[in-house]
């Protein structure tokens, strides 16, 4: 895992929150971990293949996921927002990963990403990759947002 693989996710997360949600995301901490296991109750896992490969795991508390959905779909009623939460956070993760992949791919390479898999509330019984991971945490008016970047270059 190289730091330059994580940097595009900082740029992409900040710009996607601003453009899609009109929310100002601020950098908090950067930690190095042994795998991309998330720490919060809502997680979105996206696989990456191509020039760089591995997993990116996004994580946030449920109230943050709800606030993301509300910001993405203003005017919807609370019951409807709860039903749409999974779709909203998966699309947010998809856009951030897509934007970061544009930077990582540059002119020469191609990077594919898998459709997002969303987990809400349950214990995660998933085998995460054992890849050195850069865990980026962000703060915002709606709460904390975590991005675990576990990528290696081909």
């Amino acid at each position: 895992m190289r730091a330059e693989h994580a940097n595009p996710f900082i740029t992409a997360a900040v710009s996607t929150f601003a453009k899609e949600l009109n929310i100002n995301l601020k950098r908090d901490e950067l930690k190095v971990k042994e795998s991309p296991v998330p720490t919060k109750s809502v997680s979105i896992i996206i696989g990456v293949t191509g020039h760089v490969k591995g997993q990116v795991v996004y994580s946030m508390d449920e109230n943050v996921a709800y606030a993301v959905t509300k910001a993405m779909l203003p005017g919807k009623l609370p019951a409807e927002l709860k039903k749409l939460m999974s779709s909203a956070v998966s699309e947010l993760a998809n856009i951030i990963t897509g934007q970061a992949s544009i930077i990582l791919a540059g002119e020469k390479y191609k990077i594919d990403i898998t459709p997002p898999a969303v987990f809400i509330g349950a214990e995660l019984s998933i085998d995460f990759l054992s890849i050195q991971t850069i865990c980026l945490t962000f703060l915002s008016e709606i709460g904390a947002f975590e991005v675990n970047v576990a990528l290696t270059e081909e």
């Binding site: 996607t16 998809n94 897509g98 544009i102």
Partner: peptide, 25 residues
């Protein structure tokens, strides 16, 4: 209409016959 708007993907889609490529967001 995709988040994955890498140069190669845009080129591939347009050369296969897509009329335009909009990058999300």
């Amino acid at each position: 209409v995709s988040a994955v708007g890498q140069k190669q993907q845009v080129f591939e889609a347009l050369s296969k016959g897509a009329k335009d490529f909009i990058v999300k967001p």
